[in-house]
């Protein structure tokens, strides 16, 4: 019995782990950190690395939803706009009785989730191309924001936001804690639930998924809703860390979220990948940005390096992308 079991499902091979893209990304991050600590004293200091991970948490949270959407075969270009909405929207929904700010945060997250679900409805029911649908949503939100916030920065203080931005229970920044919890939950959802399997099925072959009885519509709506939710969380975290929100605060995180997903080895064509790769992907991204700042590269070089990196990684995994 034992032996047939191992024929059917061979024991976990150490080589499989060593060859996997998430692990490769972790290695790159580690190598970069070690090399940079030798080259520049202070880079490897605990405080600095902790700061990097804290920055990584912002990108990483936004990448959660993006990972779900990309694995399901779509793309969410409204992540940046939703982040801004939630960062700017909190003061608008704050009310007197809400001492801790928790209600305002919940309302904001609910709104972000609804926005995401609307994206999903557009993609699943109107059959709009994901790029068009989320782009239109981003444009719409951008206008709405300027109308609501009037273009000036808003600041919001509440105990919850303060905790998010500056608390360090047992030395770990609160943002990183939130990220860790959210990551665990999404890894479970993706890899240990039937829902996660449906997401993979949808992205790998939506026709076969439909014929196998997968409810493609509800799954699509759900992944975009998740993307809205995590973008909303990102917005709250940013607001906490920055102390104020302004229109455009979320913009850099759209491309970073996509880059983190791609760097982590998730196929941009959908159907395969894991959030376990996006985690080191997000840290790699902020590390590269920090390194480029350390070596005093100009923003131009920074951008060129960044783009070349995406292209290089794409070429490495190119074989897989031609499978269709």
């Amino acid at each position: 019995m034992r032996s047939t079991e191992t024929v059917r499902f061979p024991k976990f091979q150490r080589r499989t782990l060593l060859m996997s893209r998430p692990f490769l990304t972790v290695l790159i991050v580690a190598a970069l950190w070690i090399a940079a600590s030798f080259a520049k004293p202070g880079f490897g200091a605990f405080g600095h690395l902790r700061y990097l991970v804290e920055l990584g948490a912002v990108v990483g949270l936004a990448a959660i939803g993006q990972t779900f959407v990309v694995i399901a075969g779509g793309i969410d270009l409204s992540v940046g706009a939703i982040i801004t909405v939630s960062a700017v929207g909190v003061p608008l929904v704050s009310f007197a009785g809400d001492e801790s700010g928790a209600f305002a945060a919940l309302i904001t997250l609910a709104a972000a989730t609804v926005i995401g679900a609307l994206n999903g409805i557009g993609v699943a029911l109107l059959r709009a191309h994901p790029m068009i649908m989320t782009l239109a949503m981003a444009t719409f939100l951008q206008g709405l924001l300027i109308l609501l916030a009037g273009g000036s920065a808003v600041s919001a203080q509440s105990p919850l936001l303060e905790w998010l931005g500056s608390a360090r229970p047992t030395g770990v920044p609160a943002g990183v804690l939130v990220w860790a919890v959210a990551s665990t939950l999404s890894l479970i959802a993706l890899h240990a639930t039937p829902f996660g399997a449906r997401v993979f099925a949808l992205g790998a072959n939506s026709l076969a998924a439909t014929l196998s009885g997968v409810n493609v519509r509800s799954t699509t709506v759900a992944v975009y809703a998740i993307s809205g939710l995590t973008a909303g969380m990102t917005g709250l975290l940013l607001l906490g860390m920055n102390g104020q929100g302004y229109v455009g605060i979320g913009d850099p995180y759209l491309l970073s979220s996509i880059a983190a997903v791609v760097l982590g080895g998730t196929s941009i064509l959908g159907g395969s990948g894991t959030y376990a790769g996006s985690i080191p992907g997000a840290v790699l991204l902020v590390t590269i940005t920090a390194l480029i700042t350390v070596v005093n590269a100009s923003p131009g070089w920074r951008s060129i390096l960044f783009g070349s990196l995406i292209l290089a990684l794409l070429l490495v995994s190119g074989r897989e992308s031609r499978r269709r």
Binding site: P194, A197, A204, A208, G213
Partner: peptide, 18 residues
């Protein structure tokens, strides 16, 4: 009929996941 890039076991289980 199948999800080619996924493994055999996973494909066998898909209707149950659905």
């Amino acid at each position: 009929g199948l999800h080619l890039i996924h493994n055999i076991g996973w494909n066998l289980m898909l209707p149950s996941f659905a």
